[in-house]
Design a protein around this nucleic acid. Structure first.
Lengths: 199, 199
DNA sequence: CGTACTAATTTTACAGTGTTAAATAATTTA
DNA sequence: TAAATTATTTAACACTGTAAAATTAGTACG
């Protein structure tokens, strides 16, 4: 009977409903306000039913983190595709990263915050969708290196990431500094590193 | 009678005992494992007594954060005092910052993590003991600017801080990258920025 | 159709959290 | 010694994540 499939579809639906509810709560109350009972309320079930779909709260957070990484990958690819020159691609991608961090602030904190370890993310994500996979390619090409995993590429990538992630973190934590100054620092740093790639 | 003073001293002692207990717990279980009842156990009291000394849990965390900033300031000053040349002072200070982040990892996460907002720290700390106050001085001098609060100094300071904080965060979250590479990135970045100060 | 079985869902429960108010014990003052 | 004050604890509340048991709903079969 096809009812088996219908039920399977329904179960899959509540699985995404749970994640959506969690996402909503995280988005407008912060991820520390997320609770199993709140999710249950939103999907009009009782709390224990969630454990039928996810092992525990951490698993839900991890799933959200994954979604965040995919969304970030999407934004970066989008930005990249709008440019021809490698230098412009690099700049556009990091600016997209920057924008993502503030537009999807809760996602960003989940992804790079101290709580959730995103160490395992590399294995959990589909190949080619980590920020590294996306951003390292034009870097390598600009350096005249074909292997993405080359140490020299890796070093430069982390140099980019460090300064941008550092700026983002500081701006999330301390809201004092003006956006104008930060954008200046960001652009200066990006062009500075990009220039250094050609040596 | 002097007993008033003795009692006052005793109360002050349990105040620091509470903080010490909290510090111990945070140090070897992580700051998310801190609980009022655990503190109470350590100081051999019941939990509600803590509220006689601190408004709530957040206040304790804030106090620890403050201690962390003071310790960091101490380490940076120490490093600075060992060098004569401004360039060397700058490098030594950021290396001290780097070491602090990993030696006092729990402190660092408390200070710069997503949870606790350190925005108000500037007002809560004694004048001259924020990382900015300490690190901006040689930067300004090297740039030939006397005002520490000058926007150009500020920009350069944040450039330093961004890349170092970014590197630290990434290393705390993802443990993959080798320490050797990171130290290289760090040194390169520092000397790079330092060179740019003279323009 | 009714019964037996299975799956879905809820109720209840436990151990823990931060925090407050009331009750008690200890100490100081008169 | 009695009263007043202070220190400390006990009890309680409203939460949290999670597990086991009880209940309900849905399906399959005789």
């Amino acid at each position: 009977m096809g009812s088996k499939e219908r039920i399977h579809r329904l179960k899959e639906q509540t699985r995404v409903n749970i994640l959506d509810a969690a996402h909503d709560i995280v988005k407008d109350e912060g991820w520390q306000a997320l609770s199993m009972r709140k999710i249950a309320d939103k999907i009009e079930y009782t709390a224990p039913i969630i454990y039928e779909y996810y092992a525990n709260k951490e698993a839900i957070l991890l799933e959200l983190t994954k979604k965040g990484f995919l969304l970030l990958a999407c934004r970066m690819n989008e930005a990249k595709s709008k440019h021809e020159k490698l230098e412009d691609q690099i700049e556009a991608m990091w600016l997209a990263y920057w924008n993502f961090a503030f537009e999807e602030k809760e996602y960003y904190q989940l992804m790079f915050g101290v709580e959730v370890n995103c160490c395992i993310m590399d294995e959990l994500l589909p190949p080619g969708s980590t920020p590294y996979d996306i951003a390292a390619e034009p870097i390598a090409r600009l350096m005249g290196i074909e292997d993405i995993e080359d140490d020299r590429v890796c070093t430069k990538y982390y140099t980019y990431w460090s300064i941008i992630h550092g700026l983002v973190s500081i701006n999330i934590v301390r809201k004092g500094t003006s956006d104008e100054i930060n954008r200046q620092i960001l652009k200066d740093a990006i062009t500075g590193i990009t220039r250094s790639l050609k040596n």
